[in-house]
């Protein structure tokens, strides 16, 4: 190596170092190639790595619940794709049982509506729900702000990141959103095959499953999110105890009765149990549900009514194999999303 290229390399090294020191660590959010523009309003909450770390610590801290017993992560566990594993409907403080199943959290920055009934229009504002809900964290916002203000760790952290000595709910929800927007899942086998990465290919069975998926499922569970912002009925009868009418609760429109969010199928292998009330516990039984539907039911959404899902036993296995290619281990075990506290 001659001296000028040595100098150049030194220069490059120093500039990168200086850049990193100045800009700090980058926020983990990024725009995956070929994905649409996110809907999240980043202007109102510019990405900032320190705020991400604050949001992450808050996500894992039971300080947000009235009796300091549960955190967001109690219902949204990373290794189950941030869904609530094992419980049909979620469990809040004092073992209170909610009405709905905690959905997995991924690719939230691209969503227009939140919750099984689409009642929540904004990711920031979403967090007010679990915090104040009596069956979840049951925490009054004014007491929570007081608690955070009095915590030496959090008052210092909010001062450092938001420059405030008066913590308000908007600071709190923006910090949480800095963490939740970063939960991007797009490194499943499916994604890698699409991108032609690592020389990966689908097996024959997965290929057959993909064709079945495109025939029967992708009209509602649309790639790349394997979800949609439309509210649909996939034929689940109402649970007579929960009496959850879904979208109608929000719009007051009878036509929206029993319509629910079309949830993402990314990491679906891990986000059991399934459906808004967690009534189906095994993925293969979800597939069976679609094959056993009463397709003359006028309440069923048209995508299904017009195109009944008919699958042989083997085809059901093929479809299951395809669904498992949506598992993203990089996401489920990403160190940046693990439990952490403010240092």
């Amino acid at each position: 190596m001659n001296s000028s290229s040595f100098l150049f390399i030194c220069f490059l090294g120093f500039s990168i170092l200086a850049f990193t020191l100045k800009k700090g660590i980058p926020h983990p959010f990024y725009q995956p190639k070929d994905w649409p523009k996110p809907t999240y309003n980043f202007k109102g909450n510019p990405l900032d790595y320190e705020k991400f770390e604050l949001g992450r610590a808050l996500f894992y801290d039971p300080i947000l619940s009235r009796d300091s017993s549960i955190s967001c992560a109690s219902c949204h566990l990373q290794f189950t794709a941030f869904a609530h594993v094992d419980h049909k409907t979620s469990h809040g403080i004092e073992g209170r049982i909610g009405k709905r199943n905690a959905p997995g959290l991924a690719n939230l920055a691209w969503r227009k509506l939140f919750h099984w009934d689409g009642g929540v229009l904004n990711l920031n504002a979403q967090a007010i729900n679990p915090i104040t809900h009596v069956d979840e964290m049951d925490m009054a916002l004014d007491s929570l702000m007081y608690r955070l203000d009095r915590s030496p760790i959090y008052s210092a952290a909010f001062k450092r990141t938001f420059g405030t000595t008066d913590i308000r709910s908007f600071h709190l929800v923006k910090a949480l959103a800095q963490f939740t927007v970063a939960l991007i899942s797009e490194n499943s086998k499916y994604d890698k095959v699409q991108r032609g990465e690592d020389g990966l290919r689908f097996t024959d069975q997965e290929k057959k499953g993909l064709i079945l998926f495109n025939n029967f499922c992708s009209s509602c569970h649309k790639p790349p999110f394997f979800a949609s912002d439309d509210y649909k009925s996939n034929g689940l009868p109402i649970d007579p105890e929960l009496l959850d009418f879904g979208r109608m609760t929000i719009t007051g429109n009878k036509r929206d009765s029993l319509l629910f969010m079309v949830p993402t199928l990314r990491n679906i292998e891990y986000s059991f149990p399934y459906m808004h009330d967690g009534r189906i516990s095994k993925l293969k039984d979800v597939i069976k549900h679609y094959t056993l539907l009463d397709y003359s039911n006028p309440l069923l959404s048209k995508e299904l009514r017009k195109n009944p899902v008919r699958l042989s036993e083997n085809e059901q296995k093929d479809l299951l194999a395809f669904l498992k290619t949506l598992t993203d281990k990089t996401f489920l075990f990403d160190e940046r999303f693990k439990y952490s506290t403010i240092k």
Binding site: G44, V120, L121, N129, H133, S169, F170
Partner: peptide, 20 residues
């Protein structure tokens, strides 16, 4: 708007969380 600042603060008791 999703803005929760100042007059929009849910703390004021005028905010419906479950139905934005």
């Amino acid at each position: 708007s999703g803005e929760l600042e100042n007059a929009y603060d849910p703390l004021l008791g005028m905010y419906w969380a479950w139905n934005t």
